[in-house]
Amino acid sequence: MPGTPSIQRPTQHQFNPYSDNGGTILAIAGADFSIIAGDTRQSEGYNIQTRYAPKVFRLTDRAVLAVNGFAADGNMFVKKVKQRLEWYRHAHAKDMPLRAIARLIQTMLYAQRFFPYYVYNILGGIEEDGSGAVYSFDPVGSYERETCRAAGAAQSLVQPFLDNQVYFKNQVPPPGRAHPTHLPLRDVLDIVIDAFTSATERHIEVGDGLEMYIVLAKGRTLQGVEAAQEISARTDGERVFVLRRDLKKD
């Protein structure tokens, strides 16, 4: 109403319960494998808090979750997801399937719709039909299945690179040939490593170390990717490996 004096409340210094801890995560799905990667730097502003704080977590032998954003929320969220998966194990004596974990994560995120977990999640692994899959989420639970996704501080640097290298955007195939629908494991690993070395060059919040989790469908082997350390609970189903590399520390 015009002429009404506006009566404002005194402004208060408000506690901000969020922070941004930088870093970048990324996942790419192949035909029968999936790679989920993240750098290991944790920062706040211009401070590097630590050079090694994992952002990628094995949930089951066929599911790996990468969490990026506010680290305290991320760690808590992973803990809660793991608890829910443990209850599932108690009830059903088996691990939860990947697509069910994806839906679980959606409901858990949306449950905090009005005080969200400030985290971007990427879930990678193997579906029940044996195909590699990647699910990406926003902080309040919107999600979709994709072939590849980058998130975090250097998302804007990495995602266009992936669009070009994985989806072949702006590439014209040689005459008479089509782009492949799925890339082999070795090529995907090279893309992941290149993505992170480039992001490290150009983004101050990315660097120090790189952790790449490789999830293989049942019966598939690493085929020439040595030095990957196996962390699966059982060796007769889907298998999880982790591969670590240094990134520049400056």
């Binding site: 808090q49 630590t50 305290a72």
Partner: peptide, 17 residues
């Protein structure tokens, strides 16, 4: 904030700078 991390050297406050 509940933020946690682990490292071989740590400093809080002004010491972090």
């Amino acid at each position: 904030l509940g933020t946690t991390y682990s490292s071989s050297t740590l400093a809080t406050g002004y010491g972090a700078y």
